[in-house]
Design a protein around this nucleic acid. Sequence first.
RNA 1: GCGCCAGUAGCUCAGCUGGCUAGAGCACGCCCCUGAUAAGGGCGAGGUCGAAGGUUCGAGUCCUUUCUGGCGCACCA
Length: 933
Amino acid sequence: MADYKGTLNLPQTVFAMKANLTQSEPMSMARWEAMDLYQHMQRTRVDAPVFRFHDGPPYANGPIHIGHLVNKVLKDMVVRSHMMEGMRVPYTPGWDCHGLPIEHRVVGELVKKGKMKDLDALPVEVRRMAIRKACAADATKFIGVQAKAMQRLLTIADYANPYRTMDFAYEEGTLGVFAELLETGVVFRERKPVHWSIANRTALAEAELEYESRDDPSVWVDFEASDPAAVAKAFGLSDPIGSPSLMIWTTTPWTLPANLAIAVGPSYRYVLVRIDGSETIVAADLLARVQSAIGATQVEVIAQTDGANLVGLSYRHPFCEREGRVIAGDHVTLEDGTGLVHTAPGHGEDDWRVGRREGLPAYCPVRDDGTYDDSVPDWLQGMNIWEANPVVVKRLEQSGHLVHQVVFTHSYPHDWRSKTPVIFRATEQWFIGVDRPLKQGSETLRGRGLHAVDHTIGFVPAWGRNRLRGMLESRPDWCLSRQRAWGLPIPSFTLPDGSAFMTPATVRAVAKVIGQKGSDAWFTETPAVLLAAYRPTDDPLAPQGLKVESLEKMFDIFDVWFEAGSSWNSVLRARGQGFPADLYLEGSDQHRGWFQLSLLPALGVTGQSPFHSVVTHGFVVDRDGKKMSKSLGNALEVEDLLKEFGAEVCRWWVSGLAFENDIRVDLDHVRAAGEAYRKIRNTLRFLMGNIGDLPTGDCVAEAMRTPPESLDGWALGELSRVQREVRDAFNRYAFREAHLAIFDFCNDTLSSVYCAATKDRLYCDPVDAPRRRQTQRVMRLTAHTLCRLLAPILPHTADEAFRSMVGEAECIHTHAHLPFQFTAHADWSKVLVARMAAMKALEGAKANGVDNPLDAGLTLPDPDGVLAKFQSELADVCGVSRVSLQRDSTAVTVHDLREEPRCERSRRRDASVRLRADGVALSDRDAAAVGAA
RNA sequence: GCGCCAGUAGCUCAGCUGGCUAGAGCACGCCCCUGAUAAGGGCGAGGUCGAAGGUUCGAGUCCUUUCUGGCGCACCA
C-alpha cells in the first residue's frame, strides 16, 4: 500500500513550537534597541494623534517586586495598545529619589561604620552634604537596578532619558510649582508637634523610633473649675456643690505647663462625685477604675450628665496664671485615665488637631535642647523637662491638686541613634492650606479638588471617584516641610529679626541656581549666590531695605510627595509633552499619594487636573489573600519568575488579572499562564504553518473577497468581531477582556472549529485549489491580525511570529491594526448550534463503536432549511465524513460508515472512494491531487 | 476606630437596573486522534453564591448586622 503522507500539504514553519523565552526575549530586546524602537516610534509618528500617558515614579529603593511587575506591565499594555492604534505615545519613565527610607538606611550604614560621630561634629551644611552624597549614590544605584529589570519585562519607554526627582532640571521644575503656589497665597507657616530627639536636636520619623520600656510618673490631677455654678448647671443641679474639679490623668507631667484645654467625649456620660471629701468630675464608666487606682475610700455620686454639657466650662490652670476650657475631642477614649484628657496642642498630635479646630495655639514652652523657655513659671524656667517631672509633681502635691501618683512602666518611643526618650514638640512648619482662598476668587484647593473629582476626572474602576473624594473631603492641610537632609530644600531664609522670609521671587531666583547646580547648591552656596538673580527692590514682598547678605538659610526640605506631585510640571510641561495627561495609572494607594498630591498643586497653579483619567490596580497578595512580605516568606521574586517562565508568560498572567481588586499571586497561576501561552503560540504556529505556500498578495483585500456564507467567511467574521472587541477592551483598559477574547478566539473559533474543519482541504486539496487558497488567505489575515492584537501583551512573541511571516527586517511594533470589517452570513450561528448537537450525538455513538468521527455520517435536522446553504461545509465543520439534512426531524442521527470504503489519503468515507490503478482506495479529490487515475 | 474595596465551583473570574434548572476558562475524570505530536479534539462531573437577619410573589443581585482579607487615615513611598 502506498504511503500518501508525502503527498499531503502538511504545516511547515520556522516558528518553533518551543518558545525558549528566557533566551529569545533578550534577543528581541537587543533588536529593538538596535533599531532604537522608542525613538523610531516618536519620529515616524510626529503627526499622529498623541496619547499622553505619564509614569508615576517608583521609589528608587531596592530591586523591583511583583507589585512593580504588575504596575509596569499594565502601563506597557497601555502604551503599546495605543501605539497599535496608530498613536504617538511619548512615555518617560521616572523615579522618586529623595526621602526618608533612603536616608534612613544610608545613615544607618554610616552609624554602623562609625562615621556618624565625626559627621555630627561638623556644621549642619557639611554634615548634610555628606549624607546627601551617600544618598544620591544609593538612589542612582537602585535606579539602575530597577531600570534594567523593567526593560527585561519588555516594556517600551524612553529609558535613555528618564526623569529623576533629584535631577537639576526636575528640581527647578518643582520649585517652579512652589513659587506659583506661593503666589496664590495658600502657603503658610505654623507650629505643629513632631517627634523630637533632644539629644540630636532634630525631628524624627516614625521609622526612627524604637519603643522601649520606661518608668514615668503617672499622676491624677484635679483642675479646679472656674465657675462652680456653671458646673452645677451642666449637671442639671440648681445649686453649686462645693468647689468641683476636673480630674485628668497623665504620664507626662512635664507637659502640664503647656496645658490649654481638657477634652471630653461628648457622647460619654460623666459623673460629678465626691471622693474622700472633695468634688470632682470623671467619666462614669471609669469611676470604678479611678477609685481603685487612686485608692479612694469614700465615693459618692452626686449627679450625671453627657460630656457635651461639659464643653465650654472653664478651669484654672493649677500653676500657670491662666484659664483653660473644656472642649470636645473625638480622640477621647474610655480605656485609660479619667475620660477627661489633658490637652497640650504643642505636645501631641491629637491635641494639636483638636486644638487647631478650637482655635488654640500650638503652645510649646520647650526649646530644642529640652529646656523650658521663659514663658513658664520662674521655678521651671531653663529646667530640663525630664528633671521637671518630679518638680511639677511635687508642686501639684503641695498645692493640693495632686490626687494620686504611681510609677508607671510603659513602652515609650526612643531615638534610634541616641537611645534617649523622644518628646513631642511643636515646631514651625510650612503648610499648603487646602481651605485657604486662592488669590483669584474665593475658591480653595479642596473645593477645586472636589469639583475636578466629581466633574472632570474619569475613574477606572469607578469607585476610585468615591475614594479620592473621601480623601479630599477629610484631608488636613498639607505639611510640606521635613527636618531632614535627603531632599529638595525649601528655599526659605531668616531675616535678622529671626522671622522666615520667602517670596515667589526669591524662590524663582533660587530655582535658577538649583537648575544649574542642583539642590546641593543650597548647602554649599551663600544666600548672595543663591539669590544672584533676585532684586529686593523689584519684589513688593521684600522688607524695606533688605540686604541679601543679611539673610540666613533655613534647612527644611520638601515632603517628597511635593516633588513627585510636581511631575506634571517638571516632566510633562518642561519636556513639552503636553498638559494635562490623558492618563495616570498606579496602585490604589496612590489615591492618597500621587494622584491627590499631583492634583492639588496642579489645581492651585493651573486650575486644571493634571490627568483626564486615572486607572488604579490593587495590591499583590499571596495565595491566601495575605499581604506579601519578605519577612513572611510568601513573596515571589521577579527575577525567579523571569528565569523560570520568561517575561511573556508573566505578561500574559498580568493581562488576565482582574486588576481592580487584590491580586492574588501564586506560582500555580503563573504556571497556568505558561500553559495558556503555549496554546496561543501553537494556534499561531498552525496558522503560519499552513500559509507558507500562499503567494504574496494584499493580505486584507484578498481576504475580503471571501463569500460570507463560506466557512472561511464565518472565521473572518469572527476575526473581525474579535478585533473590534479586543481593541475596544484595550481602549477601556479592560485588559482582561482583551485577554479572554483572544484566548477564546484561539481556542474555540480557531483551534476547535476552524482549524479542525479546514485541515482536510489544507492538507488534501491540490496546492492551488481555490478552496484551499481561500482558507489560506483568511488564515494569513488571521495571523497578521492576531499578531497585532497580541503585540501589547506579548511584544516578543507577536514580533517573532510577524517576522517569521514577513521577514527578519520587519517589526510588528512599527505597524498599526489592519483596517477591515467583515460580516459573515448571519445563519452561521445556527450552524454552530447544530454542530454542538452533532458533537453530543457523536459522543453517544462511541458506545456503538463509532469512535472516530470520520467513521460517521450525520443526518442533521433542518426544520427551517437554514442549514442547506452551508451543506458543502457541514461535514468538515462536524469533522465527519458526510452530512445530510432532514427537514422533518428534530434529532441528530449518526450513521456508522465503518463498512464503507475509506480514502487512504484523506481517511474520509466519501461516496467517490474507489480502488485506483495502484490498488489504493482514494476519493476523486485525492486521486486528482496526486494525479492517480 | 473611620473611609473605600473584595469574599460566587479546587483555582482565576462573569453574573447589567432583583426574575428561566447560577455561567466561563484552568485544573480534574473518561474518551478520540496520532498528518499542529513535549501537539490537537470531544464529552463529563464540580457551587446551601463568607455568615446571620430583613424587604419582596421572587435575592448571588436591595437593606441591616457580622466575620475574613486588602488599601488608605503617619516626617514610609
